[in-house]
Design a binder for these strands. Structure first.
Length: 160
DNA sequence: GCCAACGTTGGC
DNA sequence: GCCAACGTTGGC
């Protein structure tokens, strides 16, 4: 069985793919997710070994900028227990944690980030979750979408 | 359980 | 900074 492919959104001002690359072991916890549907996918569906596309949102050029690997499946997000933390949740407890995170490790930057604008121009991506449900922060990517993205992220985009 | 009010996201 | 979309909260 092959591993699934996901797309994780992040605001690069807060945490970018460069932060991930520069982290110890090039690995970081994907914490701070506070949306139930995204939480459910983190907790129930994403497995160690799955591949992740990193998407930068709320920035000058929203785009898929590279890839990472899931190195640890879901475990309680510790930031929910820290009263000083912006992502603190008083309704959560260590006995019944509400929010979960995974760990991901940097794989690579795309030589040519695949911009949202580019994806919107191509009817092949019309049913991609990024287009259909843009606010969901943990998205599924199909094998076909992934293969198309592999061609678009090359330095010389001759497919346009 | 409904739904209005409110808060957040994120492209532009 | 605006605003549409949409998720969450809380009174009833």
């Amino acid at each position: 069985m092959t591993h699934a492919i996901w797309l994780l959104k992040t605001e690069p001002d807060a945490f970018s793919i460069q932060h991930l690359e520069n982290a110890a072991d090039q690995t970081a916890g994907w914490d701070g997710v506070r949306n139930y549907q995204a939480r459910n996918r983190l907790r129930d569906d994403i497995q160690e070994g799955d591949r992740v596309l990193i998407y930068h949102s709320s920035c000058a050029t929203p785009a898929i900028v590279g890839e990472a690997l899931v190195t640890r499946a879901a475990y309680p997000d510790p930031t929910q227990f820290l009263p000083e933390h912006p992502a603190y949740d008083a309704r959560s407890s260590r006995e019944t944690p509400r929010w979960f995170q995974i760990d991901v490790r940097f794989i690579r930057h795309y030589p040519n980030p695949v911009t949202l604008k580019r994806l919107k121009q191509d009817a092949k991506f019309a049913d991609m979750e990024l287009i259909v449900r843009p606010r969901l922060s943990v998205q599924r990517v199909t094998d076909r979408q992934y293969q198309l993205i592999q061609t678009l992220c090359q330095p010389m985009d001759v497919s346009a």
